[in-house]
Structure formats: C-alpha cells, structure tokens
C-alpha cells in the first residue's frame, strides 16, 4: 500500500515537473532556458553574482 502511494506520488510529481519545465523552456523570455552549456556560460551568470567572493589582494 505504502509502496503504491510512494510510486504514484513520485510519478505525479515527475509529470508535473516535466510539464512545468516544458512550458518554461518554450515560453521563457530568456534565450538560455534549457541550455545545457557547451561553453560554461549557462548558470554562471547566477553563479558569478557573488559579491565579496574574492579578495583581489589575496590573488596577487
């Protein structure tokens, strides 16, 4: 019983996520949506926005 419940919940969540992802990819205003990065550029914009991440003095 519990196994069936877990199975159906997982599958329902997966289908919902897949539909959401499809809509996001097709209709997002960002040209990069769905990009799996051939050049390291995907996701790096957000990753790069870390203020104070680097102390220039320590790099020299």
């Amino acid at each position: 019983m519990i196994q069936d419940f877990l199975t159906y919940t997982t599958v329902a969540a997966a289908i919902a996520y897949a539909v959401f992802n499809l809509i996001k990819t097709l209709f997002s205003s960002s040209g990069k949506s769905g990009c799996s990065s051939g050049c390291g550029s995907c996701g790096s914009e957000t990753a790069g926005l870390k203020s104070g991440k680097l102390s220039l003095g320590s790099k020299q």
Binding site: G31, K32, G34, C35, S36, S37, G38, C39, S41, C42
Partner: peptide, 11 residues
C-alpha cells in the same frame, strides 16, 4: 560551440 550545446551556439 554547437559541439558543446546547440543552445548557446544558436545564441
């Protein structure tokens, strides 16, 4: 760039 992913390549 398409050898990596076609999406950034198209951009």
């Amino acid at each position: 760039m398409g050898f990596g992913c076609n999406v950034p390549a198209i951009m």
